[in-house]
């Protein structure tokens, strides 16, 4: 990456990042995320009733489901808004490559999510006050949670490149994220396996293999494996490549 690449990406990042703070969407999403993340942990998982201060099964376990709805809400404006306002025509006739713009915008959404996730840190302090949690699984849990959110955001970015309507982008992205979360749900997989004829089981297992969930849970348990990180990174890269394809198709 040359200096010029970096400066352009940074300029797009800065604009997009500030745009989030200038709109109510950001504040609404952060508040809902914090309410959901903590509410599920304390009221559904009843984390205080158990003699266990690890966060994996009562805190992080909810994140994929929260991200299914909230990550598309953050990402839906990325390219849909450019299409709708027509500013895409300005941006694409500036001396900026599509890649610089795609990365800049994605990083802005990623930055927003970093802030949201960082605001959940108090729960770590709570657990440290109540007991003595292992720091390893907490760190890898946060990394897993963040990577999962990034994967959902990249997916939304790809969808938003194809449509000028934020609503359409939101609905399609949520469907995608939900599908990806559901195919990895162990109990659902078990139900489907027992319902389908023998021999189809391998097909179900094959679809199950594409879920984010396995990789996510491995990491939240504190098993930090490069393979799982690479999985998420490659999902993000592919989704951003699809974003590029979407932008090209709109300009063709």
């Amino acid at each position: 990456m040359s200096n010029r690449d970096l400066q352009n990406t940074l300029a797009v990042f800065k604009r997009e990042f500030l745009a989030y703070f200038n709109s109510p969407v950001f504040y609404v999403i952060v508040v809902i995320f914090l309410l959901a993340a903590n509410g599920f942990t304390f009221f559904f998982s009843r984390i205080l009733d158990f003699d266990d201060v690890s966060l994996a099964t009562r805190f992080f376990v909810w994140h994929p489901w929260i991200y299914t709805v909230l990550a598309p809400a953050v990402g839906m404006r990325l390219w849909s808004e450019e299409h709708r306002l027509g500013t895409i025509e300005l941006l694409m006739t500036m001396p900026v490559s599509p890649w610089q713009a795609i990365c800049g915008k994605f990083l802005a959404a990623a930055g927003v999510w970093f802030i949201a996730l960082a605001l959940t840190i108090p729960i770590v302090f709570t657990m440290s006050y109540l007991g003595d949690p292992d720091s390893g699984p907490i760190i890898s849990g946060y990394v897993a949670s963040y990577l999962y959110a990034m994967a959902c955001l990249a997916l939304t970015s790809a969808v938003s490149a194809f449509t000028r309507s934020q609503v359409v982008c939101f609905i399609i992205s949520v469907s995608f994220c939900l599908f990806i979360a559901l195919i990895g749900d162990p109990s659902l997989t078990q139900t489907v396996v027992s319902a389908v004829p023998v021999g189809m089981e391998s097909v179900v297992r094959f679809i199950n293999y594409f879920s984010f969930m396995d990789h996510f849970f491995e990491m939240t348990k504190g098993i930090f494996v490069l393979r799982d990180v690479l999985y998420f990174v490659s999902v993000i890269v592919v989704a951003l490549l699809v974003t590029d394809v979407g932008l090209r198709s709109k300009r063709a």
Binding site: R15, A19, N22, S23, L85, G86, T87, E89, L90, T93
Partner: peptide, 13 residues
């Protein structure tokens, strides 16, 4: 330098 039709602008700036 290019002025597109309908003069698009980022409305949040």
């Amino acid at each position: 330098g290019y002025l597109p039709e309908n003069a698009p602008l980022y409305s949040d700036m």
